[in-house]
Write a protein that binds this DNA or RNA. Structure first.
Lengths: 199, 199
DNA sequence: CGGCAGTTTGACCAACATCAAGTTGGGTGG
DNA sequence: CCACCCAACTTGATGTTGGTCAAACTGCCG
């Protein structure tokens, strides 16, 4: 699955799986600018092209509409448009939060922030309150993490090892993570208010 | 002018001047996440608080509405909401473009990108086509540039000097810039398609 | 003539990137 | 079942970019 600057005739939302939104420089440096999780929207009402690449990070099931049909639906349903505006505003807040991370956080803080976000989303999914002792599987490769955080895979790997060494996380293997103390992880992330990305 | 996590009872748009949107880490590191220029919107319909700081970078004239009244207007005018959605989607694209800059560009590329954007905006304002030999005044201090680009003021200063030394720009004083060859500046910015921030 | 904010420049340093081997683990074919 | 393979990951040695600390310069305002 891959859309670049091509014309889009459909629009849709993720049902299952993980897709990523990214952009590259001509020499190959890549930055991920969004993670599309179930319920997230792909495509832009009112616009023909997206300036970003959409790539599946796993098998992805989409619920799609013909773009024309969707635009008509919007025109007829103000409440749908209101909802869309809200979702877009939330994404904008998330993007700005991420700008703070990319511009000002250290490698260790970046990793801790990403882990905190994924841990929180997983906890929310399971409706578990405690958060401490939470165990989850990273849905991303080291390369995807690096592209997301503006780092190299080596730095990601090293910082993961450092967090493990410092008992902030436990790693059963590269993907299976346990967070014994969610508060400690948040401290490492560097912002008192835990960044509100991905909801 | 300064709004932080406070409750907002008004909403508005910039008429003249420049305001900035930024966010800080507890230890003072700051990242600018948006530049509000004339016609840009401040505030979030449907939300009480903004998680970012709005700071005037110059004297700013705002056109404000009571938030309640504005929400009512939206509810009554679908076309207003459509326009708002469009503006928000554009801002989201800009934010994502900026994420690429923050995550993957070098200091020199960051500076060149910012200069290219400001040069282009100024040229558009003057409706001048040529772009080469364009002369303009930076609306930002070195500190604001640094906060915008995720750099320190020293690095900003050094890279400005380097671009001057390499004849990419001319500097009459710290703020008065001339771009003899817009294409050359774009090359330094690192992306073939010139990044579409700030329109 | 200070004084001061904004800027520039230099010397040095730390964080992260780069380059280069290894290691791990799951999958495939003999 | 084992041998091999390959992608993903880890680790180490070294290099570079940009940050830090410190000092000086500029232009403006009182």
């Amino acid at each position: 699955m891959y859309w670049a600057g091509e014309e889009m005739t459909s629009i849709g939302s993720v049902v299952t799986g993980v897709a990523t939104l990214s952009r590259s420089l001509s020499d190959g440096r890549r930055q991920m600018v969004g993670l599309m999780l179930p319920s997230d929207f792909i495509g832009r009402p009112g616009r023909k092209i997206s300036p970003f690449d959409v790539v599946a990070a796993s098998d992805v099931l989409l619920c799609t509409f013909q773009k024309r049909a969707f635009d008509t639906m919007i025109a007829q349903s103000p409440s749908l448009e209101t909802r869309l505006l809200e979702m877009t505003l939330d994404e904008l807040d998330s993007a700005r939060e991420w700008m703070l991370l990319l511009g000002r956080k250290t490698a260790r803080e970046k990793i801790a922030s990403l882990l905190a976000i994924i841990a929180r989303r997983d906890a929310a999914l399971l409706k578990s309150k405690p958060l401490d002792g939470l165990r989850f599987t990273l849905p991303l490769t080291r390369e995807a993490m690096a592209d997301y955080l503006g780092l190299t895979i080596e730095t990601v790997s090293r910082q993961m090892s450092a967090l493990k060494r410092d008992r902030i996380i436990e790693m059963e293997d590269a993907r299976r993570i346990t967070v014994p103390d969610y508060g400690a992880l948040l401290d490492e992330a560097g912002d008192d208010a835990d960044g509100g990305l991905l909801e």
